[in-house]
């Protein structure tokens, strides 16, 4: 229970509370409007979506745009979806493990070279990815990982950002907990796995979502690494119907929904988990 709840009188509604909820609701509509917009636009016919003056809701809602995309033999949506899922899940699991473990070591261990290592990590965040793209590509060629889904997972197994985040959280965990673990004769890895990891549920969930989303939405890199059409990931759909040679806005909107929907659904499911975690563990 958060302390503020004690201040709310049952059945009593304060002015401040009304103002607060008004702000929250305005924010809510601004946040959701683009989602609603893309959804309703995707149900419009190609003619209606460009009609001036525009209407917000479609006059004759149709699923034709979706049917067109799913029937397009050039875009095997199910295959793209499976590829995206595989890469995203793989990267999330690996990143959560490496980030929490390395974050723990940076937060709670002293060893020579620590600052240097941390510096290298920070530099990884600071260097623009576009610039290391070519050398990275050359390295993947040497590892023979070009045109494989591993080429999308392997370069992202260590996430400097994730390590940084975990270190911040682990620094907030009292040292006594670790000392107590050592007293009980737990090995260093056991302390990490049994004492630290359970404390990290909420930040791990956040990092997991963040990684999943970054992977799911990754656009530039997969288009370069993957050359076989059947190995491509879902975001390819986004620009498939929109390029300099002719764009079809209704199909683009439907393609956006197809790309967005899975991650939004997964997010909704996952979010409940986080909320429950925060409530039961106190997340202090």
């Amino acid at each position: 229970m958060s302390p503020s709840t004690t201040r709310i009188v049952p059945f009593g509604i304060s002015l401040g509370m009304i103002a607060r909820y008004a702000v929250l609701l305005i924010g809510l509509s601004v946040t959701l409007l683009p989602f609603v917009y893309v959804l309703v636009s995707s149900l419009k016919t190609p003619a209606e979506i460009i009609r001036v003056p525009p209407s917000f809701f479609p006059k004759d809602a149709t699923l034709q745009n979706y049917l067109t995309i799913f029937a397009d033999p050039r875009v095997p949506v199910a295959t793209f979806f499976a590829n995206s899922t595989l890469v995203a899940v793989g990267r999330v699991l690996i990143t959560l493990f490496t980030s929490s473990l390395a974050g723990y070591i940076f937060a709670r261990y002293e060893f020579s070279g620590k600052n240097l290592m941390f510096g290298v990590l920070m530099a990884q965040i600071m260097i623009p990815f576009q610039m290391i793209m070519i050398p990275l590509y050359l390295i993947l060629v040497q590892l023979q990982l070009i045109d494989t889904l591993w080429g999308l997972i392997l370069p992202a197994m260590i996430d400097a950002f994730g390590i940084f985040l975990m270190r911040q959280f682990i620094e907030g965990i009292p040292r006594e907990l670790i000392d107590a673990g050592r007293m009980d004769g737990a090995s260093e890895f056991q302390i990490y796995a049994r004492l630290i990891l359970p404390q990290l549920r909420a930040p791990l969930a956040s990092l997991g979502i963040f990684t999943f989303m970054a992977t799911w939405n990754d656009y530039l890199w997969p288009l370069i690494v993957i050359t076989t059409h059947e190995k491509r990931t879902l975001p390819l759909l986004l620009t498939w119907y929109s390029n300099a040679h002719g764009s079809r806005p209704a199909l683009t909107m439907a393609a956006s929904v197809i790309v967005l929907l899975p991650i939004v659904l997964i997010y909704i499911l996952f979010q409940r988990q986080i909320v429950a975690n925060a409530a039961t563990t106190g997340f202090k």
Binding site: I134, Y137, L138, V141, I146, D147, L220, L223, I224, T227
Partner: peptide, 14 residues
């Protein structure tokens, strides 16, 4: 991405 891929892949020979 076509142009970009050409330039990434050519030094690598892929």
């Amino acid at each position: 991405q076509f142009i970009e891929t050409l330039q990434t892949s050519m030094p690598a020979g892929t």
